[in-house]
Design a protein around this nucleic acid. Structure first.
Lengths: 120, 120
DNA sequence: TCTAATGTTTGACTACACTCGAACTCTTCA
DNA sequence: TGAAGAGTTCGAGTGTAGTCAAACATTAGA
């Protein structure tokens, strides 16, 4: 299920996004992906959001090996991490794809924009 | 319990704010207060966020009679509305005060600013 | 082909969230 | 002083969320 965002988003879509970000572990997962995706410009990533094993990958087409890197950083079982990834996807915040054993994550820019526009 | 916000807010505070906004009813309550508080400039309020009985009050020092107005608009019991107000207060999103029978609500601008700065 | 690594799904457990009605406290007004 | 109005607190019921371990599926490499 993917949501599409328009200029004025429905309240229910906002609450869905906020629900996805309401769990601290999940928020951290999202921030790690977000920060690492938007670092082409070379901003340094705050230690809190850095993957342990860095530099992890090329960020151009999304974060590679995101799942494994996050499992290593956070003290959570793989099934739990899988669940959190799914929640972030269902809220439309990220997209994930596998090609063979390569798991690549991307932030959905429309959703990011919607969050930025909220209250503005 | 009141939270104070600084330039770089803790992740846990963000997740607390998002949790408060993750329930659709509560998000709507917040938006009604927010929109009605920031309307001194005279922007018209979207029908969705308008109190039924309008104009309800003077907005200078916050929304007056917010509790009653919201009970009238939303199909929720007073105890439920009370609970939602408390959650919004605990997250630091609004402040409420009673003077006699006057219940006045205000949006916490620091929290609003924090949300606006998130991801920016 | 066998094995190890990577992620998913399922089932279970615990904790917390949303909601209501009922009983309560204050305040105001008759 | 009594009654009505406004909001809170409490207890209970139902549902959902977060987590894990175990079993599974798929892929890569030996």
């Amino acid at each position: 299920m993917m949501l599409y965002y328009f200029k004025t988003m429905e309240l229910s879509n906002y609450s869905r996004i906020f629900k996805a970000l309401s769990n601290e572990q999940r928020l951290k997962i999202f921030m790690m992906i977000y920060k690492n995706c938007s670092t082409e410009k070379g901003d340094s990533i705050k230690a809190e959001f850095r993957f342990k094993e860095e530099p992890c990958c090329s960020m151009k087409g999304g974060v590679e090996r995101a799942f494994t890197l996050i499992c290593d950083c956070m003290n959570l079982s793989r099934s739990t991490v899988s669940h959190h990834f799914k929640e972030l996807q269902n809220a439309g915040l990220i997209t994930c794809e596998r090609e063979g054993q390569t798991y690549r994550c991307n932030v959905n820019e429309d959703a990011v924009q919607a969050v930025k526009n909220f209250l503005s």
